Amino acid sequence: MTAGPARSVLRRGRGVLEVPGVALGHAWHTGAGRLTGTTVIVPPPGSTAGVDVRGGGPATHETDALAPGTLVDGADAIVLTGGSAFGLATAHGVQRGLRADGRGFPAPGLPGVTVPIVPAAGIFDLGRGGEPCAPPDEADGHAAYRDARTDQPHLRGSLGAGTGAWTRRGLVRGGLGQAVVTTPSGHTVAALAVANPMGGVLDPAGRLHAASVLAVHGIEVPPAASAPRAGAQGSGNAAPGPADSARNTTIACIVTDVGLDPARTARLAQSAHAGLARAIHPSHTLFDGDTVFAVATGERREAIVDPLVLVELGVAAADALSAAIVDAVLCAEPDPVPGRVTAAGVPAPPALVESAPDTARAWRALA
């Protein structure tokens, strides 16, 4: 085993792209009438995959195929998308691209025919760009797949599946974020998160809920002057009601360079949910469809079985996901359409870089 650091090291870094062989692609829309997008993670062939769904309102596709003991051990791509259940059509566009490239599960008795396995999860961002409430579609999924590359320059912020994300029941923009942990044993565990939760990442005093997690890794950022409040001056939003509370979900993918069997890959996704709960309050509500995928790219014949290393990986997954969620919200940009009004007649919310610039700038200055 390669010698690693004396303790785990958490960074923003390049997220899932720090795991060799992983490609990342996006497609998104920001003009009048559409504020949504899609992100695809393409692991190298032979990777294992797992998933854990804990929210009460998930929008998912092919998650059952990732259960331990099923026919396939992995996924050819993982799709995170806007558009709620409608946006799951993007998985078919990714599947089309994979099949054209010869990726997928070999169809029994049909030489040359493959069936790509493309699990997906969606957030609810319908109507946030205004009329029409157009979700990402199959063409967007295909475009995101064709954009996938190992040197992807678009890593975080208001892009891909995080384009139309909101937090705190619509008081603050959410987004897409990434973080990476190098474990004491020298392994890489990265997280990509799309933060669109009912809850928020700041406590009433403006301190990050995940501050204690970050402090373990020697990371501190100044608190916001105060957490955004419903109806506050400059909040760009009225007091949230039941309809606002129901338009949520945080979705994520953990990627590691370790070799894990399907059961332990699923366990990695389960462990990561602790990081979601530490970064967002409240989390895993009836209105959130919180879903975490996990991908292990190592060779199966070298699968890790040491319980101490497995615990180490689970801790790293949780910490990386906490940081990725913080990254998503603090790297979100102001809406590109000034004065945008949603299809529900609600003004679009500000980004934290506007209402808490010192906090956002300090975070963005981290490596």
Rank of each mutant, 00 (worst) to 15 (best):
Ser245Ala: 15
His29Pro: 00
Val9Leu: 15
Asp151Gln: 08
Thr63Asn: 01
Val311Leu: 13
Thr182Val: 15
Ala205Asp: 15
Val79Trp: 06
Val22Thr: 08
Pro119Cys: 12
Pro357Ile: 01
Ser245Asn: 05
Ala351Glu: 07
Pro347Cys: 02
Glu62Leu: 14
Asp288Val: 12
Ser47His: 06
Ala365Thr: 10
Ala318Ile: 01
Thr70Lys: 13
Asp288His: 09
Gly206Leu: 09
Thr163Gln: 08
Glu312Tyr: 04
Pro338Ala: 02
Ala318Asn: 04
Leu88Thr: 10
Ala91Lys: 10
Gly314Ala: 09
Val341Gly: 04
Gly177Thr: 12
Pro111His: 04
Ala320Ser: 14
Gly109Gln: 08
Thr256Phe: 05
Ala148Ser: 14
Asp335Val: 02
Thr249Leu: 00
Val216Gly: 13
Asp125Thr: 05
Glu299Pro: 02
Leu313Asn: 03
Glu299Trp: 00
Arg146Val: 13
Ser212Cys: 00
Leu330Thr: 11
Gly15Asp: 09
Val315Ala: 13
Leu35Tyr: 10
Pro136Gln: 08
Pro282Gln: 11
Asp137Gly: 15
Phe86Gln: 10
Ile254Glu: 08
Tyr145Ala: 13
Arg34Ser: 14
Leu202Arg: 07
Gln95Lys: 14
Pro307Gly: 07
Ala272Pro: 06
Asp358Trp: 03
Asp244Val: 01
Thr48Leu: 10
Ala303Pro: 01
Ala263Pro: 00
Asp327Arg: 07
Ser212Val: 07
Gly206Phe: 09
Glu354Cys: 00
Ala324Val: 11
Ala224His: 06
Glu302Ile: 00
Ala367Lys: 05
Val42Met: 11
Thr183Gly: 03
Gly314Asp: 07
Thr36Arg: 01
Arg173Trp: 00
Ala148Pro: 06
Gly82Leu: 05
Arg301Leu: 11
Pro357Met: 03
Thr359Pro: 00
Phe124Glu: 01
Val292His: 01
Phe124Lys: 02
Gly231Cys: 04
Ser226Asn: 02
Phe124Trp: 06
Ser84Val: 09
Phe293Trp: 08
Glu312Asp: 10
Ala211Gln: 14
Thr48Gln: 03
Val118His: 08
Leu260Lys: 12
Leu268Gly: 03
Cys331Trp: 10
Val315Cys: 11
Ala318Arg: 01
Leu321Met: 11
Cys331Ser: 15
Thr183Val: 02
Pro350Asp: 10
Ala230Trp: 10
Asn196Thr: 09
Gly186Asn: 12
Gly102Trp: 02
Glu354Tyr: 00
Thr38Cys: 15
Thr256Gly: 06
Leu268Ser: 05
